[in-house]
Design a protein around this nucleic acid. Sequence first.
DNA 1: TTGACATACCTTAAACCATGAGGTATAGTG
DNA 2: CACTATACCTCATGGTTTAAGGTATGTCAA
Lengths: 119, 119
Amino acid sequence: MTNRRTNPVFLNGVPELLILHLLAQKPMYGYELVQTIRATTEQAFEFGEGCIYPILHRLEADGMLLAKTETVAGRNRVTYRVTENGRKQLANSVASWEQVVKAVSRVLQGGENAQPALA
Amino acid sequence: MTNRRTNPVFLNGVPELLILHLLAQKPMYGYELVQTIRATTEQAFEFGEGCIYPILHRLEADGMLLAKTETVAGRNRVTYRVTENGRKQLANSVASWEQVVKAVSRVLQGGENAQPALA
DNA sequence: TTGACATACCTTAAACCATGAGGTATAGTG
DNA sequence: CACTATACCTCATGGTTTAAGGTATGTCAA
């Protein structure tokens, strides 16, 4: 009880989707992604760095992202951009997400004319 | 890897949401819920019984559902209906889900100067 | 000059959730 | 008699997010 979650419970896979999309728009580094997601969703999502960094590493290892390390103002930065495979993966993820939204809507809106599943 | 999942990866919390909604429409038993979800979503979701039953038990323990056991044609049935608290919880879950959808849309549509799309 | 804060990277244990496989039992069909 | 459908259930596994921690530099104010 005392469900003190910072984020809603519907997030499985969403961080990866958003990361791929944002990086497809413009190369970014991890810390920047964390801030951007929080700002763009108006605090609806607050994915911590412990969520974002592992995903970035995994996507890079899977060939979805390319990393470039640089030094800016004495600090390290690892900037990521999506590869061709990453764009394909993004398209799949978006389609998958839209399918989920559609399926949930179908159940939530099916009130009266819901057909009995069993005879 | 061969990502051979039956369901998409975006499902966290969705089964509970659908269960609450469906039971708010009409009392049902577990096996019926499994079939109904699969039928209503046209196979988009196929939540197994290992997913549904634990949720039913937890929701009942939390006072969101009321169970009634009966015997039909020699077989046991446990029919669930939502309580007053269950309906409140459902309203919260729906609101939460809509917030998630909205937040994801905001990110996915940002960057391309896209116009607000209507459903 | 000290301390706080923002930047920027990272790891790890724990919690949570769906999956997939297994188990029990009855009724009906071929 | 075997097989399928119904109807309940549990459990180990794996994947994902969380929350907390660690490292280090630059900036600004007291």
